[in-house]
Amino acid sequence: MAVLAVLALVIFGDKLPQVAGQAGRMLRQFRQMANSAKADLQAGLGPEFKDFDINDLNPKTFVRKHLLEDDDTPVNHKSGIFDDEPSYATASANQLDPGERPPFDNEAT
Protein backbone atom coordinates (compact mmCIF):
# COMPACT_ATOMS: atom_id res chain seq x y z
CA MET A 1 0.00 0.00 0.00
CA ALA A 2 2.85 2.36 0.80
CA VAL A 3 4.41 1.75 -2.62
CA LEU A 4 1.09 2.58 -4.30
CA ALA A 5 0.75 5.77 -2.24
CA VAL A 6 4.28 6.91 -3.20
CA LEU A 7 3.62 6.02 -6.84
CA ALA A 8 0.36 8.02 -6.80
CA LEU A 9 2.19 11.03 -5.32
CA VAL A 10 4.88 10.83 -8.01
CA ILE A 11 2.41 10.47 -10.90
CA PHE A 12 -0.31 12.90 -9.84
CA GLY A 13 1.69 15.22 -7.59
CA ASP A 14 -0.36 18.17 -6.35
CA LYS A 15 -3.47 17.02 -8.29
CA LEU A 16 -3.90 13.94 -6.09
CA PRO A 17 -6.75 15.43 -3.97
CA GLN A 18 -8.68 16.35 -7.13
CA VAL A 19 -8.19 12.88 -8.62
CA ALA A 20 -9.26 11.23 -5.35
CA GLY A 21 -12.39 13.43 -5.23
CA GLN A 22 -13.29 12.55 -8.81
CA ALA A 23 -12.78 8.84 -8.09
CA GLY A 24 -15.05 9.11 -5.04
CA ARG A 25 -17.79 10.87 -7.03
CA MET A 26 -17.53 8.30 -9.82
CA LEU A 27 -17.81 5.44 -7.32
CA ARG A 28 -20.87 7.09 -5.75
CA GLN A 29 -22.50 7.46 -9.19
CA PHE A 30 -21.83 3.79 -10.02
CA ARG A 31 -23.39 2.75 -6.71
CA GLN A 32 -26.47 4.91 -7.39
CA MET A 33 -26.80 3.45 -10.90
CA ALA A 34 -26.57 -0.10 -9.55
CA ASN A 35 -29.18 0.57 -6.87
CA SER A 36 -31.46 2.20 -9.45
CA ALA A 37 -31.10 -0.76 -11.82
CA LYS A 38 -31.85 -3.17 -8.95
CA ALA A 39 -34.96 -1.20 -7.97
CA ASP A 40 -36.13 -1.11 -11.61
CA LEU A 41 -35.63 -4.86 -11.93
CA GLN A 42 -37.60 -5.56 -8.74
CA ALA A 43 -40.38 -3.18 -9.86
CA GLY A 44 -40.50 -4.85 -13.27
CA LEU A 45 -40.77 -8.34 -11.80
CA GLY A 46 -43.87 -7.38 -9.84
CA PRO A 47 -45.14 -8.15 -6.35
CA GLU A 48 -44.58 -11.89 -6.71
CA PHE A 49 -40.84 -11.31 -6.45
CA LYS A 50 -40.82 -8.68 -3.71
CA ASP A 51 -38.41 -10.78 -1.63
CA PHE A 52 -36.14 -11.42 -4.64
CA ASP A 53 -32.51 -10.59 -3.94
CA ILE A 54 -30.11 -10.08 -6.83
CA ASN A 55 -27.39 -11.77 -4.74
CA ASP A 56 -29.37 -15.02 -4.96
CA LEU A 57 -28.25 -15.29 -8.59
CA ASN A 58 -24.63 -15.68 -7.50
CA PRO A 59 -23.87 -19.42 -7.84
CA LYS A 60 -22.04 -19.59 -4.50
CA THR A 61 -24.97 -17.95 -2.70
CA PHE A 62 -27.47 -20.19 -4.51
CA VAL A 63 -25.65 -23.38 -3.52
CA ARG A 64 -25.19 -22.21 0.07
CA LYS A 65 -28.83 -21.17 0.41
CA HIS A 66 -30.50 -24.15 -1.28
CA LEU A 67 -28.13 -27.04 -0.68
CA LEU A 68 -26.04 -26.36 2.40
CA GLU A 69 -28.49 -24.70 4.78
CA ASP A 70 -30.48 -26.92 7.13
CA ASP A 71 -34.18 -27.39 6.44
CA ASP A 72 -36.81 -27.35 9.14
CA THR A 73 -38.28 -30.62 7.81
CA PRO A 74 -37.18 -33.53 10.00
CA VAL A 75 -35.61 -36.50 8.21
CA ASN A 76 -35.68 -40.10 9.36
CA HIS A 77 -32.02 -40.96 8.75
CA LYS A 78 -32.58 -44.72 8.92
CA SER A 79 -34.95 -44.84 5.95
CA GLY A 80 -33.77 -41.65 4.22
CA ILE A 81 -37.31 -40.28 3.88
CA PHE A 82 -38.96 -37.25 5.39
CA ASP A 83 -40.87 -37.90 8.60
CA ASP A 84 -43.98 -36.11 7.28
CA GLU A 85 -44.31 -38.46 4.26
CA PRO A 86 -46.90 -41.27 4.42
CA SER A 87 -45.71 -44.61 5.75
CA TYR A 88 -46.12 -46.33 2.36
CA ALA A 89 -43.38 -44.14 0.82
CA THR A 90 -40.42 -46.47 1.14
CA ALA A 91 -37.50 -47.12 -1.13
CA SER A 92 -38.73 -50.63 -1.95
CA ALA A 93 -42.10 -49.28 -3.22
CA ASN A 94 -40.36 -47.83 -6.30
CA GLN A 95 -38.43 -50.96 -7.25
CA LEU A 96 -39.49 -52.91 -10.33
CA ASP A 97 -39.87 -56.65 -10.59
CA PRO A 98 -37.42 -58.40 -12.93
CA GLY A 99 -38.61 -58.00 -16.53
CA GLU A 100 -41.15 -55.31 -15.62
CA ARG A 101 -41.11 -52.18 -17.79
CA PRO A 102 -40.83 -48.82 -16.08
CA PRO A 103 -43.84 -46.48 -16.27
CA PHE A 104 -44.03 -44.25 -19.34
CA ASP A 105 -45.44 -40.72 -19.37
CA ASN A 106 -46.45 -39.42 -22.84
CA GLU A 107 -46.63 -35.83 -21.60
CA ALA A 108 -43.10 -35.86 -20.19
CA THR A 109 -41.41 -36.58 -23.51
Score class of each variant (00 low, 15 high):
residue 84 D to N: 15
residue 106 N to M: 04
residue 45 L to N: 07
residue 42 Q to W: 00
residue 93 A to Q: 07
residue 109 T to F: 15
residue 71 D to Y: 08
residue 69 E to D: 12
residue 45 L to E: 04
residue 73 T to H: 03
residue 56 D to S: 13
residue 77 H to E: 08
residue 69 E to R: 13
residue 81 I to G: 00
residue 99 G to M: 02
residue 74 P to C: 04
residue 40 D to Y: 08
residue 81 I to P: 00
residue 53 D to Y: 05
residue 84 D to C: 05
residue 72 D to G: 11
residue 9 L to C: 14
residue 12 F to W: 11
residue 80 G to K: 01
residue 80 G to F: 01
residue 91 A to I: 06
residue 57 L to K: 05
residue 104 F to K: 11
residue 15 K to S: 11
residue 74 P to M: 09
residue 60 K to V: 15
residue 59 P to I: 02
residue 46 G to T: 07
residue 15 K to T: 07
residue 33 M to I: 08
residue 29 Q to C: 08
residue 14 D to A: 14
residue 43 A to N: 09
residue 34 A to Y: 10
residue 42 Q to F: 02
residue 2 A to N: 12
residue 78 K to G: 01
residue 46 G to P: 11
residue 99 G to V: 03
residue 44 G to R: 08
residue 52 F to W: 15
residue 26 M to E: 04
residue 32 Q to C: 07
residue 82 F to R: 15
residue 108 A to S: 11
residue 31 R to L: 11
residue 75 V to W: 12
residue 63 V to E: 09
residue 10 V to D: 03
residue 35 N to D: 11
residue 58 N to P: 01
residue 44 G to P: 04
residue 10 V to I: 14
residue 47 P to M: 10
residue 36 S to Y: 09
residue 17 P to F: 00
residue 29 Q to A: 12
residue 103 P to S: 04
residue 11 I to M: 05
residue 64 R to I: 10
residue 63 V to A: 13
residue 101 R to Q: 14
residue 68 L to S: 06
residue 95 Q to F: 06
residue 39 A to W: 12
residue 36 S to V: 02
residue 81 I to S: 05
residue 47 P to T: 15
residue 48 E to Q: 12
residue 88 Y to F: 14
residue 68 L to Q: 11
residue 11 I to R: 13
residue 61 T to N: 15
residue 1 M to A: 12
residue 5 A to S: 13
residue 102 P to F: 05
residue 47 P to S: 15
residue 21 G to E: 09
residue 74 P to I: 00
residue 68 L to V: 06
residue 81 I to R: 15
residue 97 D to M: 13
residue 102 P to I: 03
residue 12 F to T: 02
residue 18 Q to C: 00
residue 60 K to T: 12
residue 70 D to E: 14
